[in-house]
Amino acid sequence: MTRTVSAPAWSVPAPLRTAVLALGVQSALALAYLGLTDAGLTAPTMLAVPFVWVTVAVVAVRHADRPRVGRVSRWIAGGIGAAYALGLGWLTGAVGAAANAGTSADLLLLPPGWGPLFRYSGSQVALTLIPYRLVGIVALGYLVSLALRDVVDEGLSVGVGGVVALGSCASCALPLVASAAGALGGAGLGVGAAPTVGGGTYLLGTAAFVLAAWVLAARPLRRYTWR
């Protein structure tokens, strides 16, 4: 009697498939952006920063565990997450108080991911929206809301991973503030200029963002399974 032994099935992990897809879409959009505008390229290291942020944000949001909670708990967690994103945007300079009484808006065609950078100044609010950073801040706010569902649904002792994640994520704002300060001051991302590494603050901010996104998505102090 002959017995057939089949090799174990092998498949690419879902997060890796998502990362490859995200990189492919970003590459296509970047090529189209470069072809349709006069935006130039920058140093490979700085060009990679937006790709890392967006890819990590997409993977974290797509594969983060979503605890099932009631509608009220979901709205509370969502509201806190939105407030967190708004606060992080304020700290990094994406949102701020208007410096001038008039209203103005412009679009800077910086390298892919860094641009198109949208700036707006109204009577009350000023916006400086760098595409990759906007994606990252929104993703962190959403991940914070998911982490808070653990605390709301399972209690503080069981959902302590979410609390630890919040502390870890808050620390990521520090290097982001430094890089934003350099950008707005012209040291890192001047008006009409390509971004350059200024004291490594952008790279430090990227490393902190990756760590914060992982902690918030995986919440390692609780049982977690990629889906």
Rank of each mutant, 00 (worst) to 15 (best):
residue 12 V to N: 05
residue 161 G to L: 01
residue 186 G to Y: 00
residue 30 A to R: 09
residue 41 L to S: 00
residue 223 R to A: 09
residue 4 T to Y: 02
residue 162 G to T: 10
residue 184 L to K: 10
residue 65 D to F: 01
residue 141 G to P: 01
residue 219 R to N: 08
residue 122 G to M: 04
residue 132 Y to A: 14
residue 203 L to N: 02
residue 43 A to F: 05
residue 116 P to T: 10
residue 90 W to E: 14
residue 216 L to W: 14
residue 132 Y to Q: 11
residue 35 G to N: 02
residue 156 L to C: 08
residue 38 D to N: 06
residue 68 R to T: 08
residue 78 G to E: 07
residue 211 L to M: 13
residue 32 A to T: 10
residue 80 I to C: 06
residue 109 L to V: 04
residue 201 T to E: 07
residue 34 L to A: 10
residue 53 W to E: 12
residue 93 G to N: 04
residue 66 R to V: 15
residue 18 T to R: 12
residue 107 L to N: 06
residue 148 L to H: 14
residue 199 G to P: 05
residue 2 T to S: 10
residue 220 P to D: 09
residue 52 V to C: 03
residue 216 L to T: 11
residue 110 L to S: 00
residue 35 G to S: 00
residue 221 L to S: 12
residue 194 A to F: 02
residue 78 G to Y: 13
residue 163 V to R: 02
residue 16 L to H: 13
residue 189 L to T: 11
residue 199 G to Q: 04
residue 18 T to H: 12
residue 208 A to R: 06
residue 59 V to R: 03
residue 16 L to P: 12
residue 68 R to M: 01
residue 1 M to L: 05
residue 201 T to V: 02
residue 201 T to R: 11
residue 168 S to G: 15
residue 220 P to F: 07
residue 103 T to C: 13
residue 41 L to G: 02
residue 57 A to P: 10
residue 165 A to I: 03
residue 152 V to P: 12
residue 198 G to M: 11
residue 50 P to C: 07
residue 197 V to S: 15
residue 197 V to E: 13
residue 157 S to Q: 11
residue 146 L to H: 10
residue 22 A to L: 06
residue 72 V to W: 12
residue 78 G to N: 05
residue 40 G to T: 06
residue 208 A to I: 09
residue 220 P to G: 10
residue 79 G to C: 01
residue 64 A to L: 01
residue 103 T to G: 13
residue 156 L to E: 09
residue 30 A to H: 07
residue 22 A to K: 09
residue 195 P to K: 05
residue 168 S to L: 15
residue 82 A to S: 07
residue 161 G to F: 01
residue 217 A to Y: 03
residue 214 W to R: 11
residue 171 S to I: 14
residue 182 G to T: 02
residue 97 A to F: 15
residue 179 S to K: 13
residue 122 G to D: 00
residue 154 E to F: 12
residue 192 G to E: 05
residue 72 V to L: 03
residue 57 A to W: 10
residue 137 I to H: 07
residue 115 G to C: 00
residue 160 V to P: 09
residue 160 V to L: 13
residue 227 R to Y: 11
residue 145 S to V: 05
residue 159 G to T: 11
residue 136 G to H: 15
residue 94 A to G: 12
residue 145 S to Q: 09
residue 213 A to R: 05
residue 197 V to K: 10
